[in-house]
Design a protein around this nucleic acid. Structure first.
Lengths: 348, 348
DNA sequence: GTCGATGTAGAAAGCGCTTACTTGCCCAGG
DNA sequence: CCTGGGCAAGTAAGCGCTTTCTACATCGAC
């Protein structure tokens, strides 16, 4: 039915072992034999049986990439970067493929997918996105990751904080510093009444950004207001819309709103506009992440750039063992303030 | 080292065959035996060896999803929809996983990935995005798809036109009708000098949208202008920016620009703004696709909504054989005009 | 009381590859 | 001229599952 190694071997007049060695290139084969085999492969249109080779070699060409939501460019960019590191390059070489798993941010789903990846005998797994801060889940997750590693998979966390030692390799962002600088930027413009839309509760990303924000406020002697003007919500547009209205209710005179991310910021802008408030004249708005659309918003969003592509590419290299990890296994990427037109000195 | 079927069988006091049958549930097993086996599975934390089972069963739990660029929400939305159909549901059941392949729109890469998917013995493949209209590539692609199908994979095209009979199952959009209605909308507002940014040459999506556009122009007796005011370009923001400037050069008095898609439209808006032109007072702008950010643009983009999620979900069901295809195998989804604030009667 | 269904479980033969081990060969050194 | 080392290729034993075929009860029916 389908062409096998043995067929190729027969055609080339060699043994199956030799064909395998030519194909895997990890054993000396004479030049003439090699070319005879390759010709036979070509003529028969032979395609390796991946499962068979994974079974025999006890490891597959598959790398799992866990994301909260692949439709969100935040994760799409990271998935794309991982894939371009592990997949076939411009030369067509490289056989690894990415299994993208949409967890929807749900802890159980995360565990389910990790088991499925172990079942596929994945060569590695990249976990992107912030982690859920539930002790129970953290433990279950840690156990699952250890089992994966025991099964021979390389685990890399990307964009989430390191797990307690000895945890998996980690590539993360300085969320806290970014949030601090963003807040300092607004403070330096003269803002004193800042609303903060914090993102979903119980996630590390949310907490780190909030900490950075409060750090800056405390340094400016505004710690008291922080509690009152912080609203939790999802990482989506609707949360931004509703959250902005809620903040205005709590303090109709606030002059700036920091959104949990760029998408939330869009919702904030829509709400402010519907309320007849101008940006930035009446209220300054900031995002976070610097996704491609941030620069196209009107006004262009002041935000914090995360080097999503670079970080995920590095995660991709680490998962393949193509890059040596730093001592401790944790790489933290800096974040950068992108001051644009959605922030200005308070005008009211 | 790792727990196998045999270990589970030993622990449950049954044969490996029985364990396999319990796990696959396609053969009668007595209730008491079944529960003994499941307990053993639990106690030993047994995880099926996917490659081994794929080898023995001659088909894996993997479904390939080819996209041009996973970082683009257009594809992200489709990938997400496919995944939610095939992957583990809310109940945790379902074992299929999606291998997302970024082709970058490159024909060779497309072929490379299809071979890789065949190598993985993928149960199915969903090809999204417009096809390249090169006869050579079309043939190579057709051959590759036939080989995949011969190898037992179910192939589904999603968002690209059907291949000549007997081609694979297809789910597609009425791009032409959408473009026609969009153009009619502008014509009915009174526009007579319309610029068109057509997207990359040699792709079916580009051609179909262009045809719809010209259809409407011809019906209005404006066929002559069409040629002159059409500019080809990429599907990105920069193409929109440059294209808009080029169109203004060709006809400084044009009153509307139709962009190849929403992302391109953002570039158009930026260029117009830089030129000091107001939207829609001076120039109306339209997008295509109705991606989430379209409604957040300022002004909100008039565009054509493609039911990306529904179409891709259907593709996901078709690829698993969970939905019976219509006779002929082609489903065309309608598109819908979303008239928003970026279009208005010409004001100059 | 015997016989064919019927329902449940086991035995064993692969699935197509990888890889440790073995073999055969050629050539340099004694 | 013989021998030992090194290279290239072959042999064959699995890898962990699925599935066909077989075995054996149990059971209702004649």
């Amino acid at each position: 039915m389908s062409v096998t190694l043995a067929d190729v071997a027969a055609r080339a007049g060699v043994s199956a072992a030799t064909v395998s060695r030519v194909l895997n290139g990890n054993y000396p084969v004479a030049g003439s034999t090699r070319s005879r085999v390759l010709r036979a492969v070509d003529e028969l249109e032979y395609v390796v049986n991946g499962p068979a080779s994974a079974l025999a070699a006890a490891s597959s060409d598959l790398v799992g990439v866990l994301v909260n939501d692949i439709a969100d460019p935040f994760f799409g960019i990271m998935a794309s970067a991982v894939q371009s590191e592990i997949g076939p390059g411009p030369d067509g070489a490289g056989h690894k493929m990415a299994i993208v798993c949409n967890t929807g941010g749900l802890p159980e789903r995360e565990l389910t997918y990790l088991t499925l990846l172990q079942r596929q005998r994945a060569a590695g797994v990249v976990l992107t996105g912030g982690a859920v801060e539930d002790p129970g889940h953290a433990e279950a997750l840690g156990a699952r990751l250890r089992r994966l590693e025991a099964a021979g998979a390389q685990v890399v966390l990307c964009g989430r904080p390191p797990l307690p030692e000895p945890g998996p390799l980690t590539v993360t962002f300085d969320n806290r510093g970014g949030a601090r600088r963003l807040t300092e930027h607004l403070l330096s413009l003269g803002h004193r009444r800042l609303g903060y839309l914090a993102g979903p509760a119980g996630r590390t990303t949310t907490r780190h950004r909030l900490e950075g924000h409060r750090e800056a406020l405390s340094a400016a002697g505004l710690a008291g207001d922080a509690e009152r003007l912080t609203v939790q919500g999802a990482y989506d547009r609707a949360a931004g819309y509703d959250g902005a209205l809620e903040l205005l209710r709590r303090d109709p005179g606030l002059t700036a709103i920091l959104a949990a991310n760029d998408t939330v910021a869009l919702g904030v802008c829509a709400a402010l506009r519907d309320r007849g408030l101008r940006i930035p004249e009446d209220v300054s708005v900031t995002g976070f992440d610097d996704l491609p659309f941030a620069v196209d918003a009107t006004p262009a969003l002041t935000t914090v750039r995360l080097p999503l592509h670079d970080a995920a590419a590095r995660a991709g290299r680490l998962v393949l063992g193509r890059e040596t990890p730093p001592p401790g296994g944790v790489t933290t990427f800096p974040t950068e303030l992108m001051a644009r037109q959605s922030t200005a000195a308070p005008g009211r």
